[in-house]
Design a protein around this nucleic acid. Structure first.
Length: 346
DNA sequence: AAGGCGGGGGG
DNA sequence: CCCCCAGCCTT
C-alpha cells in the first residue's frame, strides 16, 4: 500500500513528457509498447513518431506492404517485432474491423504481444488490473523486497508477476504500472541509482543491506559467437547492383543484403578467388574485385559478433537481375548494410 | 526449459 | 570489456 502510493506520487512529480502518455488510443499504446520492447525510450521515440506519422491508424498500417513497414523499422533491431506488428494490424483491421481487443486475455492473441504488452495495453487503455513485469519492474521489486530469484530462471517471471499483481493499485492500475517502470528507468537505475534521494530508501532491503549492486540476480548467458561475413557488392557498367532478400530463420529475416559468403575464418584477399570459384553468381563470368575495408568491420549483436568484409565486384553485366544503385537506399536492410551503402555512395 | 533475436548506450 | 534496455517466439 505504502509502496504503490509512494510510487504513484513519485511518478506524478517525475514522469517524462512522452507522446504516448497523451493518449489512451489502443493503436498508439500498442504501437509504442511494441517499439519499446527491449528498447530504451530514447532509441524508440523517433521510430514512434515516424510510425504514427506515416501510419496514423491501424488501417493505414494494415494496408501497407511489409517491405515498407520493415523500411521504417530499419535500424531498430529485433525485426520480428515489425513483421508481427504488421500481421497483427492486418488481423485487427480486417477480422476485428479496426477495434482492438479490450482485455488482457484477448490482447495476448495478437502476434508479438506477450504477458508484458498485453498487461500494459489492458491497464493503460482499459483500466484492467494487470501488472506489468519488464526489466524495470524486476529491478525495483528485487531490490526493494530483496528477492534473489534469478529473473531469467524458470520461476523468476512467475514469482515477480505474482508479487507485482499483489502490489498493483487496484483503483489505478495504469498509473501504478507506468509509475513503477518510470521509477526503474530513471531513479532505480541499473548503475548508480539515486538511493540517497529515493522516497523508498527507508524500507528498501537492498539499500539497507548494501546489496543494490547485487540485485536483480541474472543468470549469465553464453558468449557471442564469431562469424565471418563476406558481402559481394556487385557494380555493373550500367550502374546496377544485387540485393537479396534474407529468407528462412536467423537474423534479419526478410531484410535485404548483398550476396553473402560466410566463411569459417577471415577471408584474405589472396584466397578470395579460390573461395568464390564455384559461386553461382561468379561462375564463368569475368570480373574484377577489390576489398573495400582492409580491416575487418566488427558488427556486434547480442549473440553474434559479425566480422565483416565488403568485396567490390566490378562486372560488365550482372549475372542475374539487379537493381539500379540509386535505388539501393529504398530497400530495408540491416544497419550494417545501410551504413555501408551510405558510406560507399556507389 | 533453453536458445535466438538488433542495435545503441553507459560504466 | 561488460551489462542493460516498456520481451516474444520457436524448438
Amino acid at each position: 500500500m505504502i509502496f504503490s502510493k509512494t510510487l504513484i506520487h513519485w511518478y506524478s512529480n517525475n514522469k517524462r513528457n512522452l507522446p504516448w502518455r497523451e493518449t489512451q488510443e489502443p493503436y498508439c499504446i500498442w504501437l509504442s509498447e511494441i517499439i519499446l520492447q527491449q528498447t530504451q525510450v530514447k532509441q524508440g521515440l523517433p521510430y514512434y513518431q515516424a510510425f504514427v506519422g506515416k501510419f496514423p491508424t491501424v488501417f493505414d498500417l494494415a494496408k501497407a506492404d511489409e517491405s515498407d513497414v520493415l523500411k521504417l523499422w530499419q535500424g531498430l533491431g529485433y525485426y520480428s517485432r515489425a513483421r508481427n506488428l504488421h500481421a497483427s494490424a492486418k488481423y485487427v483491421a480486417s477480422e476485428l474491423k479496426g477495434t482492438f481487443p479490450d482485455n488482457y486475455k484477448d490482447l495476448l492473441k495478437l502476434k508479438g504481444v506477450g504477458d508484458y504488452t498485453a498487461s500494459a495495453i489492458a491497464s493503460i487503455c482499459f483500466n484492467e488490473v494487470a501488472a506489468v513485469v519488464d526489466g524495470n519492474v524486476y529491478r525495483v521489486l528485487s531490490r526493494y523486497f530483496g528477492v534473489c530469484t534469478p529473473i531469467n530462471s524458470t520461476k523468476g517471471p512467475k514469482e515477480f508477476k505474482a508479487l507485482a499483481q499483489e502490489l498493483i493499485d487496484k483503483d489505478n492500475p495504469a498509473e501504478f504500472n507506468q509509475a513503477i517502470m518510470e521509477f526503474g528507468a530513471t531513479q532505480c537505475k541499473p548503475k548508480n541509482p539515486y538511493c540517497h534521494i529515493c522516497p523508498l530508501n527507508n524500507s528498501c532491503i537492498a539499500f539497507n543491506k548494501n546489496k543494490i549492486h547485487e540485485l536483480p540476480v541474472k543468470i549469465k548467458s553464453a558468449k557471442a559467437k564469431k562469424k565471418y561475413f563476406n558481402f559481394l557488392v556487385f557494380v555493373s557498367e550500367d550502374g546496377k547492383t544485387i540485393l537479396e532478400k534474407r529468407e528462412g530463420k536467423g537474423i534479419w529475416q526478410n531484410l535485404y543484403q548483398f550476396p553473402l559468403i560466410e566463411t569459417k575464418n577471415e577471408l584474405k584477399i589472396e584466397s578470395f578467388e579460390k573461395a568464390v570459384e564455384n559461386h553461382k553468381l561468379l561462375n564463368d563470368m569475368p570480373f574484377e574485385y577489390s576489398l573495400y575495408n582492409k580491416e575487418l568491420l566488427v558488427h556486434k549483436l547480442s549473440h553474434q559478433h559479425l566480422y565483416t568484409k565488403f568485396w567490390i565486384i566490378n562486372t560488365k553485366q550482372l549475372p542475374i537481375e539487379g537493381v539500379p544503385v540509386s535505388k539501393a537506399q529504398e530497400f530495408a536492410v540491416p544497419i550494417l548494410i545501410g551504413n555501408f551503402i551510405e558510406e560507399f555512395n556507389f
